[in-house]
Design a protein around this nucleic acid. Sequence first.
DNA 1: AATGAATGAGGGTTCATTCAT
DNA 2: CATGAATGAACCCTCATTCAT
Lengths: 215, 215, 215, 215
Amino acid sequence: MSLPKTRHSAAAPKTRRRAAAPEQRREQLIKATIKCIARKGLSSTTMADVTKTAKLSLGIVNLHFQSKEKLLVEVLRYIADEYKAGWDAIIRDETLEPAEKMLALINFDYSAEIAHPAKLAVWFAFWGESSSRPTYRKICNDADLQTTASVKKLCRELGCRSNRRAELIATGYTALADGLWLDILVTPEEMDRALARDVSLNYMASFFPDHFKAP
Amino acid sequence: MSLPKTRHSAAAPKTRRRAAAPEQRREQLIKATIKCIARKGLSSTTMADVTKTAKLSLGIVNLHFQSKEKLLVEVLRYIADEYKAGWDAIIRDETLEPAEKMLALINFDYSAEIAHPAKLAVWFAFWGESSSRPTYRKICNDADLQTTASVKKLCRELGCRSNRRAELIATGYTALADGLWLDILVTPEEMDRALARDVSLNYMASFFPDHFKAP
Amino acid sequence: MSLPKTRHSAAAPKTRRRAAAPEQRREQLIKATIKCIARKGLSSTTMADVTKTAKLSLGIVNLHFQSKEKLLVEVLRYIADEYKAGWDAIIRDETLEPAEKMLALINFDYSAEIAHPAKLAVWFAFWGESSSRPTYRKICNDADLQTTASVKKLCRELGCRSNRRAELIATGYTALADGLWLDILVTPEEMDRALARDVSLNYMASFFPDHFKAP
Amino acid sequence: MSLPKTRHSAAAPKTRRRAAAPEQRREQLIKATIKCIARKGLSSTTMADVTKTAKLSLGIVNLHFQSKEKLLVEVLRYIADEYKAGWDAIIRDETLEPAEKMLALINFDYSAEIAHPAKLAVWFAFWGESSSRPTYRKICNDADLQTTASVKKLCRELGCRSNRRAELIATGYTALADGLWLDILVTPEEMDRALARDVSLNYMASFFPDHFKAP
DNA sequence: AATGAATGAGGGTTCATTCAT
DNA sequence: CATGAATGAACCCTCATTCAT
């Protein structure tokens, strides 16, 4: 909208510039955004912050993502995809027994890559906004739902007879992971990845004492 | 120019709201803010939203809270205090056995008052921002730390010999509760208060089968 | 849209301010806008220009008009209404004979108030944009259509027998006026209000020699 | 770092457009600009619009015209030149009597080529801006002044004794044409080329009943 | 000669805060 | 105490222009 478009003053780029593959620029901007969200929070992260962090010019986000909103959605999707990819790789690994899979999943959930403070900050920043933003919610949910479904299946394979019981355990596992991530993010003095792993292992061990040993 | 420097005509003060007890105004504004955060999210809640919801004038927040930031802190504190008060009442109730206390706590955590969507929305909105805001973090943490400490003590009373083990269970309980609240907020179709209660009870039953029965 | 609303920095008004009746402020802003359009053109007129001209703060336009676009529409409507009001007053004046009315209309069309350079600049600025903006077009047209209808009726009263002929004369009168206004605006050295009046009178005199005398 | 400073692999120059005669490119861009102005208005026409319409690359305008401003001036000049060329051809045609010339001019003014909606849109777009842009004004004026001068001369040849009277008629003719073009552009439902021609002819017939017959 | 990714000044809009009433 | 018009910094977005390729 807005009438006045005919610019009569000139706006001239002063410095050198470089061209890059679009996909590369997008990732560069997404990573800069993650850094900013971790540092300043979602609502305080501005386009200027992001582009300065990426050492690029102000206009570049709109060039590659059309709008800030779309950038943010891509950021969330980027993290969600990374999580789902890692998780799926384990689930599909046919060399592992169910208990080994579950163990691998626990280790994955609290690996340095996944339980990284910046990424957790992003997760919860979006979760905090998710109740009023359907798009965010959808992406956040998808990850959780897949997780729960996989764990439930594993529970059955681990010998859980009742479907209802498997449901409770799997739902609990996902919720527990969310809560532990929150603790890692918010009280790093009290909670670290190792402890979170132990708590999760302890959880599984209590339900499947034959397959897991409490730490 | 304008003549009447001394206006003797009493300006009709239209509908001037009656002065109210400051404490009452503050609570009125806090409740309006909770409503707004639940409806629009933390970052989209404006002073105008809050005051319109409270049916008060725009300037009144700064009159009673000095700034938006301070209002938000008070909102968070209000919810945290309510939670801690309810929890403490149970902990201090000397008529209850440890297992009864734990059960009461679980019921409390998923009561309509505490696991209320609007309040959960507020919790997670602040948690989402907490990583970049020390003040928010402090308030959010305090609640969690007290909770964990209480549960840990109860675990010992329920027969848990190892301190380490009690720590794991208690930490897990708090994290589980956080994760379940998140689910109630974000996927109400998948998770409700009753199911959350069952998951928590199932958790406790697995560690203390003599005191709790899995649902 | 756009997430980040939670301002954490303060933006404080520094100077004195005064309150005014909304209608008064609106007119103040409309007049400032007319001045700016005449001076810089429609597309180069910015909110900052308008508010600086009105000696008010930047945010005030959005306070009173919601958006720049709406301000512009109101500006156009303001001028159109003024024109129609003056025209209607003459048309409805029952003390005037048809020829007297027509003469009064001609005098009105090139009066200082109506053929004012700033207002003409606004008219043509909007007309220039009208072909791509339905809202502008509608307002501009309405004025022209009423004008033509009135003149046509007067032509009949002046003795024009043929409806078709009255149509041609009236349509011509309106077009002539538009063209003369354009000349006054664009070539003030060649065309002034007095000459424009003479051209219009000459036009009418050629069709109704019994009622008008060529200048 | 990057190894291949001397890239011997011939970079495939994808679809590189063939170089074209500069004059041809310029006209291509001017025509695309006219199309855009007619479609979106002057102030909303961007370099991207123009180059996309011309199916050329973004940078090409600055290559051929240095700046947007200069492109626009060339667009205006292009249309003005076309008009003047057509007009001059008639004026210089020695096979025509004065009355025949005047008729030919009227027919020309409302020919499909001249009274084309897109071109009229461009005229008025520039006229709308002309009051604040001397360059535009000059070009627009030149056309009008030549027109008026020619018509005035014809009036004398048609028997108009008084210089003053010829002046009034000629000035009126030009203004009438401008106004009629505006009507064709802005109210196509009410005004078309045929009607405009009739109005103009009716105008001339009223002054020179011996030479023209009212339609 | 031609391309289009990159730049950044400039624009409209929002909204926490102030203060005359 | 209470009100809400006014303020202006800061935000997101647009787009003419540049220049490495």
